[in-house]
Design a protein around this nucleic acid. Structure first.
Length: 115
DNA sequence: TGCTTGACAGAAG
DNA sequence: CCTTCTGCCAAGC
């Protein structure tokens, strides 16, 4: 008995992508959220990595503020040099260690997501 | 079919 | 603080 959902059906995968993109589109300026949080809200807590994959490979994700998604420690995406400047332009503060000050900028969506 | 690769998370050293 | 390892899963090869 696993306490998390089984493998996704194509329908669920589609719904997952939609939810992820929907949440990302709602992140306010100057705020950030995390992969795991998005995955959990989308109903698949163990799929944090899928969130990253979705943002990286889904065409159109570039139109969304996906630079406002960082990992739980506040680290920016590996290999995406542009992300940090984008955040700093919005007033996001980085700590000396190069991580986002999560205590100050974490955005927790309370959303009433479509079931 | 089986092994490797990540825009993750958490723990360990 | 950093690196490395394990658990996690969909994708790629």
């Amino acid at each position: 008995m696993r306490d998390y959902p089984d493998k996704m059906t194509p329908e669920q995968a589609q719904a997952f992508r939609d939810t992820v993109l929907n949440i990302v589109s709602q992140i306010p300026r100057g705020k950030v959220t995390t992969y795991g949080l998005i995955a959990t809200l989308a109903g698949w807590p163990s799929h944090a990595r899928m969130v990253g994959r979705t943002l990286k490979y889904t065409p159109g994700a570039g139109l969304l503020p996906c630079h406002r998604v960082v990992n739980k420690e506040g680290r920016t995406a590996p290999g995406w040099r542009h992300q940090r400047p984008l955040l700093e332009d919005e007033g996001v503060r980085f700590k000396a260690n190069g991580h986002v000050d999560m205590a100050r900028h974490l955005w927790e969506p309370l959303s009433q997501l479509t079931p």
